[in-house]
Design a protein around this nucleic acid. Structure first.
Lengths: 345, 345
DNA sequence: CGTGACTCCGTGACCGTTCACGTCCATTAA
DNA sequence: TTAATGGACGTGAACGGTCACGGAGTCACG
C-alpha cells in the first residue's frame, strides 16, 4: 500500500477539454440526459469512444450516493449448492447491468458473517445477497447493514427478511412420492448434517410425505453431504436396519453415490433390491451406476429471482411481489424401480 | 436507478465532532499513523467502535488513488476448474485483506472479455486475475487495462504476461508414467475439447511421455469434458480401436466417469481389462466404481500464488519471483492396475 | 419590442476520504 | 534568552464524478 500513485486515467474533464464543452455536458451525454443537442452529443460521443473513456465508478458512487454493485456472502463454496448460487447470481447481476462483489466466509460464526457484510457495505454495494446453509440467529445483522437492503437466498435468519427460497421440503416430498408411487412402503432416509437448513427440510419433507401416506417412518441415518459419509451411512443402514426398508431417500447426490457403492460392495443390486433417489442433480448424476434418479433445483432461476428481489428492495417502485419460491422437480433415471416381491401397484 | 438518495452514513467528520478533534486526526487513527498522542487515539478509537464506524471505501479509493480489491474474470464457471479458481482466489484475497470483485463471461469472445475487464477497471480494482481456458490472442487487452496489472491464471494469451501455471503437461505425463510403470505399453488418450489449453497440454504430456518411453502412440479420441462425451468417446474407442490399447489416460474425471460406464456396459472390467487414469480429483472420484486414480491439482495454492503474483505487480517492491508453477500429483486408487496377460514388470 | 417559455449549456458546491502543508506549543541546545 | 527541533494537531485542496442551479440564446406571441 505504500507506493507511488498510479498514472492518471482520463477524466470527464479531459474529454471536455478535447471536445471544447464543459465537463457537465460530457457527464450529460455519458448518462444519456436529454438536454444536449444532437450535434454536440455526437461530437462528445465520438471523443468518448475514441479515447476509450471509462467512468470512474468509485467517484460516481461517491457523488451520486447510488451504487450498481451487488454483494454476495456465502459459506462453504466448495459444495455444489453454494457454488451454484455464487455463479448464477453473478450471471443474473450482469444481465441487469450490475457488478458483483463476493465475500466468502470460512467459518459460520456471527463474527465472520458480520465481517463479510461489513466489508461489502464499506464498498457501498447497493444490496447484499446472503446465503447461509445453517439456521442462525442474525437479528443483529440489521445493525451492521444499516440501510443496505439484505436478501436471504434460501436461508433463514431469526428475523423477517425478504427472501427467495427453493422449496426443499416439497422437493423431498416429491422424491418420496416417486418411491411411494413405485410401490415402496418401507422407505429410509439418508439425512444431511442436521444443522443445515436444507438437510432438515429434506428430512421433514420425507417425513410428511410418509405421514400423508399413513405409513410408518423408515430408519434414518445421517451423513455430512460427502460421498464418504453416504458410504458409511449406507453401511449402517445395511447392518442395523436390514429388512426395514426397500428404498431410501438420500439428501444429496454425493451421499447417494457413496451409498450406491456401499450397497454394491454388499452385493445389493440397485434398483432391483433397493431403490434410491438423490437430491441436486449434479452433472455426474446421470453417469452413476445406475444413473441416479434425483431432484433438480433450478439455480439459474434462483439467481435471477434473488437479484430481482434485491433490486425491488433497493428501488421500491412498484408493488413488492410475494416471496418467490422455486419448485424443485424429479429427474427420473434408473436408480428407483418397483420394490422386489411386488409385481406393481 | 431513479430513486431518492439513501440515508446518510456516518462519516469521519461525524466521528471528529463526537470526539472533539479534527477529521484529519480521525483519519490518522483509522490509518494507524504515528503522529497522534496515545490519549486522543484512545478516545477516537473508543467512539469509532462505539458508533461502528465503517470507512467509505469508494471515497478512500478516490482520494488515495489506491485500491484494495482484486478482480477476477473467468469463463465457464460451471466446470470444476474455473469454479475452484474462483473460490480459492477469493479466499486468498481475503487472507491478504483484499476485497474481491468477480466478472464471469458467458461466451469466450474478445468482446465479452474486453467488457468484463473494462467493468473491473471502471471499479478501480488494483489488479485483475484472468483465467481463460482457451488460448486466445489478447494482445489488445493491454489497451483496455491501461495501467491496471494483469495476471494470467493458468492461461496463455498472445503476449508476455505475469502468470501462474499448473503444470498440466507434467500432470499428464505423471498419469501416463503411472500406467507405464504398471506395465502398459499400449495407452490411449481421451482428450478434452481441443481449443482448451488444458486439453492440449494434457494431450502433449501423454504424447511426450509415450515418446520418451519409445512407444507408439495409442489411439486418441476426444470429448468435451462432460461425462456424456466421455461415454461416447469410450464407445468409439471400443468399436474402432479395440485391441490397440490396454489403458487410457483421460483428460478429466467426468469424462473418466462416462468412460467407466461405457466400458461397463460392454462388460469390460476395470482395471482388470482396461486401466484408467483421470485428471482433477473431483470430490466424487474416490467413489466411482472403481475408485478413480487421478491427478490432483492444488487449487488453493494456485489461488494463493495468483493473488501473490498480482500484488507483486501492484507493488513491485522486492525482486520479482519467477513465474510460479504448481505440480499436480497422482492420487492412486483402483482404476489402474497391471495389464492383462502380463504378470508384472 | 418586451415577455415568457424552452433548449442548450456552464458554474459552484458537494460526496467522504487522503495528502501536503501549516500552525501551535513544548522541549532542548546554543 | 533565543533559535531550532519536533510532536500533535488542524486547514485547504485535491480525487472524479453528480446535482441543483442559473444564464445565454432562440422562438412565438401579445
Amino acid at each position: 500500500m505504500r507506493h507511488p500513485p498510479k498514472k492518471k486515467n482520463l477524466t470527464i474533464h479531459d474529454v471536455a477539454a478535447l471536445t471544447g464543452v464543459s465537463y457537465q455536458t460530457v457527464s450529460r451525454v455519458i448518462n444519456g440526459m436529454p438536454e444536449v443537442s444532437a450535434s454536440t452529443r455526437a461530437r462528445v460521443q465520438q471523443i468518448l469512444t475514441e479515447v476509450g473513456f471509462r467512468p470512474n465508478m468509485t467517484a460516481r458512487q461517491l457523488a451520486s450516493k447510488r451504487s450498481t454493485t451487488v454483494g454476495l456472502v456465502t459459506f462453504a463454496t466448495s459444495f455444489y449448492g453454494p457454488s451454484q448460487i455464487m455463479v448464477n447470481s453473478e450471471q443474473a447481476s450482469k444481465e441487469l447491468g450490475l457488478s458483483f462483489m463476493f465475500s466468502g466466509i470460512v467459518e459460520q460464526s456471527t463474527q465472520y458473517i458480520r465481517r463479510a457484510v461489513n466489508e461489502l457495505c464499506a464498498h457501498q454495494v447497493c444490496g447484499i445477497l446472503i446465503h447461509l446453509p445453517w439456521e442462525v440467529d442474525l437479528r443483529e445483522l440489521h445493525d451492521v447493514c444499516r440501510n443496505v437492503p439484505l436478501v436471504a437466498v434460501d436461508s433463514d435468519f431469526g428475523f423477517e427478511c425478504p427472501s427467495v427460497f427453493i422449496n426443499q421440503e416439497s422437493g423431498s416430498r416429491e422424491a418420496t412420492r416417486h418411491l411411494l408411487q413405485l410401490g415402496h412402503r418401507k422407505i429410509a432416509h439418508l439425512c444431511g448434517p442436521v444443522p443445515w437448513r436444507a438437510a432438515k427440510l429434506r428430512y421433514v419433507g420425507w417425513k410428511k410425505e410418509m405421514k400423508a401416506a399413513r405409513l410408518p417412518l423408515g430408519p434414518v441415518v445421517d451423513g455430512d453431504w460427502t460421498a464418504e459419509s453416504g458410504f458409511e451411512a449406507a453401511q449402517k443402514l445395511i447392518s442395523n436396519h436390514w429388512g426395514k426398508f426397500t428404498a431410501v431417500v438420500v439428501a444429496n447426490d454425493q451421499m447417494a453415490l457413496g451409498a450406491i457403492r456401499a450397497f454394491e460392495e454388499n452385493s445389493i443390486r440397485i434398483p432391483q433390491k433397493i431403490s434410491l433417489v438423490g437430491f441436486d442433480d449434479i452433472p455426474e448424476a446421470g453417469f452413476f451406476r445406475p444413473p441416479l434418479s434425483t431432484i433438480k433445483q433450478d439455480f439459474a432461476a434462483l439467481g435471477r429471482l434473488s437479484v430481482q428481489c434485491l433490486m425491488e428492495q433497493v428501488e421500491p417502485s412498484r408493488t413488492t411481489s410475494p416471496t418467490p419460491t422455486i419448485q424443485p422437480f424429479l429427474i427420473e433415471r434408473e436408480s428407483a424401480a418397483k420394490p422386489p416381491n411386488q409385481p406393481g401397484r
